[in-house]
């Protein structure tokens, strides 16, 4: 899984106390985790990215560095929760998407590498999934958010999330393989 290397607890403590360089280090290392989720799950990733990090900074004192979840997974969980909130808001209000934000992964693809091409296709297929299915796949398969946390955030049973996950990945296999 694409996960950044773990961070020392000192940095977390400093960041919690508002140290700018420590926060900068967090952003540097875990920014891609949040950004990747934001750009895949919301049409306004810049705003979402900043909002997530404000929440993360505000809740740093709640993160247990000796707990079972890595910081990366914890950040992804916070991000997932926030993005669900955003989705619910936009779902009711509607949003106008800037189209030039779509398709960035494609341009970065090296068409001569098999794996890269597959990943590009996967990325494209991901975009076509319904929002709730995409959220589950991205949060769980890409960022390791636990299914029970996803279920809690989504307000549904774990079994429902599993069913969504199986269905979403089946759809992905079909779309990627076509």
């Amino acid at each position: 899984m694409n996960q950044p290397a773990p961070l020392s607890t000192d940095v977390l403590a400093l960041a919690r106390d508002g140290d700018k360089s420590a926060r900068s280090a967090l952003l540097e290392r875990y920014g891609p985790v949040v950004w990747s989720m934001a750009r895949r799950l919301t049409p306004e990733p810049e705003d979402a990215y900043q909002e997530v990090w404000l929440k993360v900074f505000a809740a740093l004192h709640r993160f247990d560095p000796y707990g079972s979840a890595s910081f990366s997974t914890w950040v992804a969980t916070v991000a997932h929760r926030h993005l669900i909130d955003r989705y619910r808001k936009t779902e009711t209000r509607g949003v106008v998407v800037s189209l030039d934000r779509l398709g960035t992964a494609e341009s970065q693809a090296d068409a001569h590498l098999d794996q890269r091409r597959r990943l590009v296709r996967t990325e494209e297929a991901l975009r076509t999934l319904p929002a709730h299915a995409r959220r589950v796949v991205i949060a769980h398969c890409l960022h390791g958010v636990a299914l029970k946390d996803i279920a809690a955030d989504e307000g549904v049973a774990v079994g429902t999330i599993k069913a969504r996950l199986h269905r979403a990945r089946a759809e992905l296999v079909e779309k990627v393989g076509r």
Partner: peptide, 27 residues
């Protein structure tokens, strides 16, 4: 696909976003 999904790239956020966040007063 199970192998590929976790390999989807993590992209760095656009320049400037992190700087703006670091400069925010801590909430």
């Amino acid at each position: 696909l199970a192998l590929d999904l976790p390999e989807l790239p993590l992209d760095a956020p656009p320049a400037g976003l992190n700087a703006a966040l670091v400069d925010q007063e801590p909430p």
